[in-house]
Design a protein around this nucleic acid. Sequence first.
DNA 1: GTTAACTTGATACAGCGTATCGAGTTTTCC
DNA 2: GGAAAACTCGATACGCTGTATCAAGTTAAC
Lengths: 249, 249
Amino acid sequence: MKERENLWLRPEQPARGPRPRFGRAEMTRAAIAIADAEGLAALSMRRLAADLDAGPMSPYSYITGKDELIELMVDAVTAEFLRPDGAACGDWRTELRDLARRMRSAMHRHPWMAEIGLRRQAASPNRIRLFEQVLGVLDALELSMDAMLTTMIMIFVHVYGFVQIELADQEAQRHTGLELSAWMRRQLPYIESVVSAGDHPMFARMTAEAGRTLTGFDERWEYGLERLLDSIQGSAGGRRAAGETRPPV
Amino acid sequence: MKERENLWLRPEQPARGPRPRFGRAEMTRAAIAIADAEGLAALSMRRLAADLDAGPMSPYSYITGKDELIELMVDAVTAEFLRPDGAACGDWRTELRDLARRMRSAMHRHPWMAEIGLRRQAASPNRIRLFEQVLGVLDALELSMDAMLTTMIMIFVHVYGFVQIELADQEAQRHTGLELSAWMRRQLPYIESVVSAGDHPMFARMTAEAGRTLTGFDERWEYGLERLLDSIQGSAGGRRAAGETRPPV
DNA sequence: GTTAACTTGATACAGCGTATCGAGTTTTCC
DNA sequence: GGAAAACTCGATACGCTGTATCAAGTTAAC
């Protein structure tokens, strides 16, 4: 375990030299606190150092650069994606639904995580644990390894994408300084001009319903999640013919 | 049309003053050329101005800032997502499959588009045209407007996410300067240590198969796309019971 | 006790987005 | 026709970024 972490990144504790004033864990915690509170854009190496009461270049004693800092942050939040120990229930559909909800709520706590998205693919301890858990759940579906991996990708893509869209507005708002409604109102005249031109009937129907009947994002999220789980169910047992259900486990 | 574009952004042609040396379209084209060739990180306002043989602040005469530049770029590439005029075939499944493939190949030509991802949600002419086309196709499925919108989100999320993962490696490679294999080899010792520790059996199975039997990304993409289309098919007609097919259109 | 390994902080460099301002150019209005 | 408004354009500058470099101080090992 210790040895493994040392293989992931270079060893933390030095052989000689003065005792470090803090550790990688504290640095990661401080960085996450900044990004949670003020967004990823507010996180800079100087700012992190200042929050730790250290000189501007101090963080570089612990990590090689900002990329590694973000790798540490991502790994830390990935831990919040994991199923708590001993909480396995045996039903793959429930397991995957709970996983997706855990991921979403973790990204609500750490919006920058959704912002980073699927771009960081580096192996890290908690990422590997997450893979292990997801593959362990998918194992009940009698898929080929290829299908299992693609299914896992589909789950991650779905969750990250939905949360990105959910959080896009409030991130844009933070970035531009406009309030949410002001940002939307900025494009309203253009949208209305398109609608009234009459050559986009479906789009017009959408905006017409947007004002009254459309549900909130929570309902959309749950609906989309069940559709995703349906598609996984449909691919179980190696068969992929549409409309074919899988025999009970 | 002209009027509509003027509502989207402020008018392009000034009433008085010297003739602009170039237009917004040329600026957008130059910016896309930079991002295509050298990545989004290489695109700066100064660099763009230099490529246009203009002073550093010249681009600001045409657009309000970098955000608007990227909005223009995104809208331009979104045009490549659109179905060519008169190419509608009537079968929703074929339409959606073709749309997904068009999007993927456009993002292969413009990898920065995948990088920007789902974060930019602003309405723009081609984005509205894209909505119109997708909703027009989904209309055949007899869904509620809510379900249609969520389905559309699912499609975009799926395509963007898959392409992001596909391109993540080569983007990381461009960013760090390492070759692809070197980047992967960097984490290989750690992965091997995890596997040989024995407490991640599923992950070990995955890496074992990765060397021999696993297919390339093209096959994964096609498999995932058909699963997505299955799940849309399953939700048709307002019914959502798993395994229920829709009567032929 | 010496030396090697390390932390720390200052300084510096090249780059970024863009605010500001002055000068030049073209159109509109009186 | 002349004045003024509206615009382009370029230079300069500010505050910010990641981080390379280097000197000084601290600690453990030999």
